[in-house]
């Protein structure tokens, strides 16, 4: 039983990171309808920038964070401006856009491998050593993940609910035609969605360098998780995506209570497939229906 609770705790910390990735993806997908597979490339680029800045260039953490945010923001906006916008203008099919995004992802992942090699990197920090809480242990980094995730999601909620730009983004998600009719510039709001979504990658990327280490292949996994969380949570709902991330993180950990940990990935995606088959509208709508 202790083990089960400990695994759930681990899952919660991991799920908090997943939630950040998922909400960023869901925000972009919801408002622009672009299936931004390269979101995981943003993650890998941001994480490696931070790692290189701290470990190889020896820069102070605050400066490294700024650099990392700049890279994430730059990559997200470049994708929007140079790949998706021309394709939207020429009215490409959504699958065509997806394939272009997939291509970007493959290119970015391998560019990182060319520079840093394909093996793991981790950063040492006092904060990654576990705190003992009675029979349980959780690392300060894991706690940071949970706190950061809650704070950022709260801030996003405020932005979407209380600002004019936020309201326009919500309108774009609900009714893109209406937005065009009242004369809002949809490319401007797409840019905002990509900027906010890509910036949300930064805390997830930095914390995961400390929490579980870094490898270029982690991008594929994190993208899949972000997409899966969005679907498990319910497309169109940011709360749903966050909840989906936490559910997947916990499922991946608790699922291996009695199994070898190598089953974790399979279990997380088993959950996803079950949702796709039986609840394609996601968790949020399960609750709403009640």
């Amino acid at each position: 039983m202790e083990l089960l609770i400990q695994l759930a705790l681990n899952g919660l910390a991991l799920g908090a990171l997943y939630a950040l990735m998922a909400v960023g993806f869901a925000l972009i997908f919801g408002t622009t309808k672009i299936f931004h597979f390269a979101h995981g490339a943003t993650f890998v680029l941001a994480a490696y920038t931070y790692y290189a800045a701290v470990s190889e260039a020896g820069l102070p953490v605050a400066f490294a964070l700024g650099l990392c945010a700049a890279v994430a923001l730059g990559f997200g906006l470049a994708c929007e401006r140079f790949v998706y916008r021309p394709m939207l203008r020429s009215e490409s099919a959504s699958l065509t856009i997806f394939v272009a995004s997939f291509g970007l992802f493959i290119a970015a992942e391998n560019a990182v491998i060319l520079v840093f090699g394909s093996s793991y990197h981790t950063l040492e920090s006092r904060l990654s050593r576990a705190l003992q809480l009675g029979p349980f242990a959780i690392s300060p980094v894991g706690l940071c993940a949970i706190v950061a995730s809650a704070t950022i999601l709260g801030a996003l909620e405020f932005f979407l609910a209380r600002t004019y730009t936020g309201a326009a983004l919500r309108a774009m998600a609900d009714n893109p035609e209406l937005v065009r009719m009242i004369g809002l510039n949809r490319y401007y709001y797409a840019k905002v969605a990509f900027a906010v979504g890509s910036l949300m990658v930064v805390p997830a990327a930095v914390l995961s360098v400390y929490l579980s280490g870094l490898s270029p292949q982690s991008g594929a996994w994190i993208t899949l998780v972000a997409i899966a969380s969005t679907i498990v949570g319910g497309v169109g709902s940011l709360y749903g995506a966050a909840l989906g991330g936490i559910v997947l993180g916990v499922a991946q950990n608790v699922g291996i209570w009695r199994l070898p940990a190598s089953w974790g990935e399979g279990i997380a995606f088993g959950v996803l497939l079950l949702f796709l088959l039986f609840r394609p509208t996601g968790l949020i709508h399960v609750f709403e229906r009640r």
């Binding site: 490409s92 272009a100 291509g103 290119a107 391998n110 491998i113 060319l114």
Partner: peptide, 20 residues
């Protein structure tokens, strides 16, 4: 391997933009 895959990724993206 990485050079190869990097090339495929770039080709895929460019093809989708200009010649799907």
């Amino acid at each position: 391997g990485p050079v190869q895959r990097l090339t495929y990724g770039v080709i895929m993206t460019l093809l989708m933009i200009y010649e799907p």
